[in-house]
Design a protein around this nucleic acid. Structure first.
Lengths: 110, 110
DNA sequence: ACCATTTATCGTAATATTGCAATATAGAAA
DNA sequence: TTTCTATATTGCAATATTACGATAAATGGT
């Protein structure tokens, strides 16, 4: 089939899965890390930082944008992409809840 | 192509991407959340909790296990899966770093 | 207007993922 | 040993993803 069955899962589960999927590729992880490194936004230079062709990078940026992880502004000739903090915070909070839960319970069996 | 180019990314980037990919599906998110709910481990009952056929659930469990997010023990007739805390902690720490970074910088442009 | 630069889109090939029916396997129970 | 129950594996069809060359679109500078 190839298509994911989303109907019977909760909105939250689908939303988290979608956001994680956006980061589930080394190139997209690298893009986010590059955004950290440059302390601002990406304007063209990202293509030179990745071992991928320009259309491929553009596609990855689009996926990050669709998932709400980055925002894009037209900045004259170039385009300025930067992190959407809210999305990152949401993911961080999610892992905080999971992490706290399992830390306090300290694994009963396995 | 379909195959991800991993060669030119760092080990850390590939590792994070692999772990996130394991969680990048609502069924696998639901499995982890179910593990939280039952406060222990899964022994068979998970198939009844998901809107998917048994072989499909088995496949999702396998992917979570391959990525190191859950551990499996043979427990008599059934199999006992539970969370691998270390993997969850690793992901949590990763998002903490990113989250802290962008929070302090408060978005210069977009 | 023309050209250069930057980014997006299209088209396409290769591969991966998802999902399930059928079947296999392993252990428990009878 | 036969049977039941739980999980895994196989095989396959449908769809998604990844990557890139070619090309388009948008803007700035000349």
């Amino acid at each position: 089939m190839g298509a994911t069955k989303t109907t019977h899962f909760t909105d939250k589960q689908n939303q988290i899965a979608t956001m994680l999927k956006a980061l589930a590729h080394p190139a997209r992880v690298a893009i986010v890390e590059y955004l950290m490194k440059v302390e601002g936004c990406i304007c063209g230079d990202i293509v030179n930082e990745l071992p991928l062709a320009q259309p491929t990078v553009s596609q990855h940026l689009k996926e990050l944008k669709n998932a709400g992880l980055i925002k894009g502004n037209v900045e004259g000739n170039a385009i300025c992409y930067c992190i959407d903090e809210q999305a990152i915070t949401e993911l961080h909070d999610y892992f905080t809840v999971i992490s706290n839960h399992f830390e306090t319970k300290k694994n009963q069996c396995c």
